[in-house]
Computed example of a mutant assay.
Amino acid sequence: MARRRLDLACGLGLLSRLPVNWLLSPAQRASTALWPLSRSIWCWPVLGAALGGLVGAVFCLLRLCHVAALPAAGLALAFQCVLTGGLHEDGLADMADGCGGTTRERRLEIMRDSRIGSYGVLALCLSLLVRASAVAALPACAAMLALAISGCLARAALLVLPASLPPARPDGLAHSLTPLPRGPLWVGLGLAAGSVVGLAGGMGLSGTWADASIGTQAGAWTFVWTGAGTGHPSALFTTLLICLVAAGATLAAATFVGFAARRLLGGYTGDVLGAAAVLTECCILAGLTALL
């Protein structure tokens, strides 16, 4: 139990700015040993789902207070940046700036520069625009679950890239994850899959999208899955469709970032992982709006 608590503290300390000392035993608090970052990867997707759910809860509370959808989404994302410290957004901006370099060495040098360039600003603005408009387009309850799903799979993408790419540098976050332990990797991916299925099932069972145009878009398939041919998708069909869209969006974002990292940098860095997380969230949230 103490080992699992240390893993949770390590993951929570990396992915958020929340206090973690309460998770540690007195001996662990007094220890000066390095935290087992690579061993903690199993809990990243679950923590991502919890953080996304908190952001979604803020959005729901603002909507209950009759705040308009787009300002409520913007404020919820502002809360997310405070909650996570903008860690992934910083990685996205750095990777976008690095793409302007002409050589691998120059790109890595630019990515380590604390200054932000025009590419980084554009990437941040566009990512916030996509996420805020997508959240605003979803019903409040659906948005909360969608943010939990996107948060979960965004952190799952952080497990896939280190498993398929070498570190681009001999130091930094990427180096500390190498070699990636296979046991925690498969546990993390399994927990991610289970969490997404459960959250998607909650969306289907809640009937949030019962009257949405998904019934029209699905066409003849809805007759099969509803059983009664009512024209509205059943909970099972809705759950399956949400899972497929979320998984496809995650695969597309991770593949794109992984291909760019291999070609431009020769591997992954911490900034690459941050960029993958943000782009995954953008793709998932945008994809879910297509179901409405």
Rank of each mutant, 00 (worst) to 15 (best):
G219L: 05
A123K: 04
A134F: 12
A193K: 06
L180Y: 09
V135L: 04
L191S: 08
P139C: 05
W186T: 09
W186C: 10
G198I: 14
C141L: 12
G202Y: 04
I214R: 02
A137F: 02
A143P: 01
G120Y: 01
R182N: 10
G207E: 08
A218C: 11
I214K: 02
A157Y: 00
G231H: 14
L138Q: 02
L122T: 13
W221M: 11
G202T: 07
G231I: 14
L205W: 11
G120S: 10
A168E: 06
A220E: 08
T230M: 10
L191T: 05
G202A: 09
V160Y: 05
S213R: 14
L124M: 13
L122S: 13
P233Q: 00
C125F: 13
I214L: 15
G183T: 11
A218E: 00
A168R: 04
R155W: 01
P170I: 07
I149T: 07
G227K: 04
G198P: 04
T222K: 01
T208N: 03
G204L: 00
T216Y: 10
G194I: 11
P170L: 08
G201K: 07
C141V: 10
P181R: 02
V160R: 00
L173H: 09
S195K: 01
A140S: 14
P181K: 05
G188M: 03
A140H: 06
H232M: 10
G229H: 12
V121K: 06
A193Y: 03
G194M: 08
L189D: 03
C152V: 09
T208I: 13
L205M: 13
A148Q: 03
G198Q: 03
W225I: 05
T178L: 09
